[in-house]
Design a protein around this nucleic acid. Structure first.
Lengths: 237, 237
DNA sequence: CGTGGGGTTGATATAGTTCAAACTCTGTGG
DNA sequence: CCACAGAGTTTGAACTATATCAACCCCACG
């Protein structure tokens, strides 16, 4: 998962997202969105690619048995909206205030990738980053215990999200979103938070503001081989 | 990213694998492998790209807590071995008799993608498919019950694997592999099989030969929205 | 014959779901 | 200004699916 990690981090960079090349960027139309807004939904024609600039969104799907699953969280720097068949398979919904998203007409982007090697590479890279995010996500869900899953999740968010000046971690998603992301019940997420709080592994100020007090403990509890992950500074590749 | 990319990108559809373009194919050296052979392992320099021709392999990783996880099964048609960082992250081990694998020197392949737009597109396309496939794997693991997970797994295998003349499904992997793929205990996999057998949803002749008697029942039990999946001919979802 | 790996089945323990209730916070209307 | 409603969160108690431990079967192989 080294690779994964590296991509992940590079991707992320809520900290310093790499901006697409000039030609690509010229296609962009930036929009501001409100919480709850739906960017796309299953079956919708995929006309655009998106790039999260500020804020956050989630990609979800409804399973046959009616449960909701959060497939991915989209944070600043993430390119998304890829499809294979030309139709979206997921809901993409804005979950944070002050969310701005760049929108690229798919047809133009497609044409661009055929002409411009740099654009092509950009797309491939974005796809690989998405893959690595998903892979990390898979490892998170496999963590045997709920506390382990949450530990891994917090580490992931600490890397991907913007860390506040106060050094606190601002989670843009609700407990429900976290639960559907880790596939556990909301109550279990809440209890897992309580455990970490009691152990002084994390401190919280309200449900969405967290401080990681003992990073080592989080690493130890999570089944994800985070120890192999490079730090954002190294930003490999 | 090395390992990540390798599996991911490598995952093209199963039943009627699209063969890489001619120029690409000219680089190939085909090898025959025995069960248990290791193609690559974490940390190994990634010199080659691979394409599974016949047989099967699994890609695994060992987690911090010592458990083994099957990250992917490699079936005929699957491309794998892509890396960005240049080192593998997973074990790739042959699990079936009569396994033959085409090997492409990485450097040559890389050069080819830079020169040949078709090759480049082949890779990108594979990456996009991989994203969808990863999501399917994720959904498999999320299925609430073990029987649901196994149901989804069998449907996936029925699509990706070669179906025998007798209409039976030949599973190239052991119960242990399935367990590590779905992240459940071996015993649970075994019990889930028993349930499906008792319900006449499937019939078995030995552990690795299965007949799907009631496809609808499998779809209903699995939490995966298979209704979205097209047949392999149409280029799996 | 044994031996060992894979597979199945049973009994018990436990983590997590489910059901239920209380609590916080925010916004809204009397 | 306060009461109220509703969504999000936390905690408790009972229940359940799965992990775990253990025994046994089957078969290939020396």
């Amino acid at each position: 998962l080294d690779t994964v990690a590296q991509i992940e981090i590079g991707t992320v960079a809520g900290r310093s997202p790499r901006r697409p090349a000039g030609a690509f960027e010229n296609l962009a139309r930036v929009n501001r969105h409100r919480v709850g807004e739906t960017l796309h939904y299953p079956g919708k024609e995929a006309h655009y690619l998106y790039r999260m600039i500020t804020g956050a969104a989630r990609e979800t799907i409804l399973t046959a048995d009616g449960r909701r699953q959060v497939v991915d969280f989209l944070l600043p720097g993430d390119l998304f909206g890829f499809t294979v068949a030309g139709k979206h398979e997921f809901f993409a919904e804005v979950i944070a205030e002050n969310t701005t998203i760049a929108r690229y007409p798919r047809s133009d982007a497609q044409r661009l990738t055929e002409l411009d090697a740099a654009a092509e590479r950009l797309m491939s890279e974005a796809a690989l980053k998405t893959i690595s995010r998903l892979r990390t996500h898979m490892m998170l869900m496999r963590g045997c215990t709920a506390v382990g899953k949450l530990s891994g999740f917090l580490l992931e968010m600490a890397q991907r999200s913007v860390v506040l000046p106060s050094d606190g971690l601002a989670l843009p998603m609700s407990r429900y979103d976290i639960a559907d992301y880790l596939s556990v019940a909301v109550e279990t997420v809440s209890r897992a938070f309580s455990v970490l709080r009691r152990e002084a592994t994390v401190a919280v100020a309200g449900p969405r503001l967290v401080w990681i007090l003992d990073r080592g403990a989080l690493i130890r509890r999570s089944a994800v081989p985070w120890h192999r992950m490079v730090t954002p500074d190294q930003d490999a590749y």
